[in-house]
């Protein structure tokens, strides 16, 4: 083995690949809102997504009743 072969060049540590977030099942489900998923980030932080359940009357009020008039 030559002396050159013994020299070890310090290598920069390879950057660890960022693991993909995973999703958790439903966490909470009450009358008004429902959590559909929580995305768990690689470092364990959690993004919470909530579905807000509307009453029938509120859902109706959020609707456009008129039709597109002919031009």
């Amino acid at each position: 083995m030559t002396s050159a072969a013994r020299i070890s060049v310090p290598q920069a540590p390879a950057e660890a690949p960022v693991p993909a977030p995973t999703r958790e099942p439903v966490e909470r489900n009450d009358e008004r809102s429902r959590v559909v998923s929580r995305v768990i980030s690689p470092k364990g932080a959690r993004v919470r997504e909530t579905v807000v359940i509307l009453s029938e009357a509120a859902a109706r009020r959020l609707m456009i009743q008129g039709q597109i008039p002919p031009r």
């Binding site: 470092k43 932080a45 993004v47 997504e49």
Partner: peptide
């Protein structure tokens, strides 16, 4: 629908999300 990003979630993680 509403989404909540945790206060301690860094930018890199958030962009990844």
């Amino acid at each position: 629908r509403r989404v909540d990003r945790p206060a301690d979630m860094g930018l890199a993680e958030w962009l990844h999300y």
